[in-house]
């Protein structure tokens, strides 16, 4: 995808928590270009700064060094919408109002047209008949589908997903991955997707970027040229899927062991 102008350009970005010199260096001078309409998955060991990176895209953190540029092409569309790992549906709003929240909050609500859009995504996520319910009346999977409906209904130029399925049980996760793939193939907005699941990354992404253990750097970028539309069950049976997942693990396994050792050292140091 290189050569195109990036939708998102990350230029020498570092993030240090606490003291600039002695603080915890979460991300170390990373560069990344994400093309318009590209679905990029970022994988890496725990604590490698991948969540921090996506939170910077979302405007929730600021880089300590470097710059992130996101092209905001259409002012009628919000720039980003984030789907969080935790439950993030507002308990005080109905399902319908939750799904409409993004459009209303960002001031891009356009009456009937927006309502149609919200209803469409409620239908797509199977929540339309629950639109007058409150989140506390829904199951965990439904609440996460509501977050997805809210983000898609917002019609952002970039969709940000921070391990959106991590809290779900394995079987629900499989279904949601497929539903997300179908939904995305319809709209093809730019997506940044953080995950621990290598199979999830291969299944969903156009490209998988691997981060090192802390301080996080990009150590590998893997193009996933599996054909779309991707049907989860079929894709998983192909030898290419297995090979790509294994290739990712070859790169990542070493980093995970490093991260474990770092963690052990840190805990021991803190204990002294």
């Amino acid at each position: 995808m290189t050569g195109k102008t990036g939708k998102i350009e990350v230029d020498g970005v570092a993030k240090v928590f606490g003291d600039p010199q002695r603080g915890f260096r979460a991300i170390d001078k990373v560069d990344l270009t994400i093309a318009d309409g590209e679905f990029v998955c970022i994988v890496g060991p725990s604590g490698c700064g991948k969540s921090t990176l996506i939170r910077m895209f979302a405007g929730l953190e600021h880089p300590s060094e470097g710059q992130i540029r996101i092209a905001h092409d259409n002012p009628d569309r919000p720039m980003t919408a984030m789907i969080f790992q935790q439950e993030s549906a507002f308990p005080w709003l109905t399902v319908a109002d939750n799904a409409a929240y993004g459009l209303r909050a960002s001031g891009t609500w356009r009456g009937a047209e927006s309502q149609e859009r919200v209803d469409y995504f409620l239908q797509k996520t199977g929540l339309y008949s629950f639109r007058d319910f409150r989140p506390d009346q829904l199951s965990g999977g439904m609440k996460q589908r509501l977050s997805i409906a809210r983000a898609f209904a917002t019609n952002p130029e970039v969709l940000l997903m921070d391990e959106p399925f991590a809290a779900l049980d394995e079987q629900n996760k499989l279904i949601m991955q497929e539903e997300l793939a179908t939904l995305w193939e319809e709209f093809r907005s730019t997506v940044v997707f953080i995950t621990h699941g290598l199979d999830e990354a291969v299944l969903l992404g156009d490209r998988v970027v691997v981060m090192s253990s802390a301080p996080g750097r990009f150590i590998h970028s893997l193009e996933i040229d599996l054909p779309r539309p991707r049907k989860s069950a079929e894709i998983r049976r192909t030898p290419e899927f297995g090979a790509l997942t294994a290739e990712l693990w070859d790169i990542l396994g070493h980093e995970v062991r490093t991260a474990r050792q770092q963690e052990a050292d840190r805990i021991q140091a803190a204990g002294r």
């Binding site: 979302a58 929730l60 984030m82 969080f84 993030s88 005080w92 929240y101 940000l160």
Partner: peptide
């Protein structure tokens, strides 16, 4: 929970909107 404020911030809700749609119901 901080997450609700983050949702509002990510979606570029104004101060007043955040006040009315997150802080107030959260404080109820």
């Amino acid at each position: 929970p901080k997450i609700y404020f983050e949702v509002a911030r990510n979606l570029k809700a104004s101060r007043l909107k955040t006040y009315l749609t997150v802080a107030l119901p959260g404080a109820l």
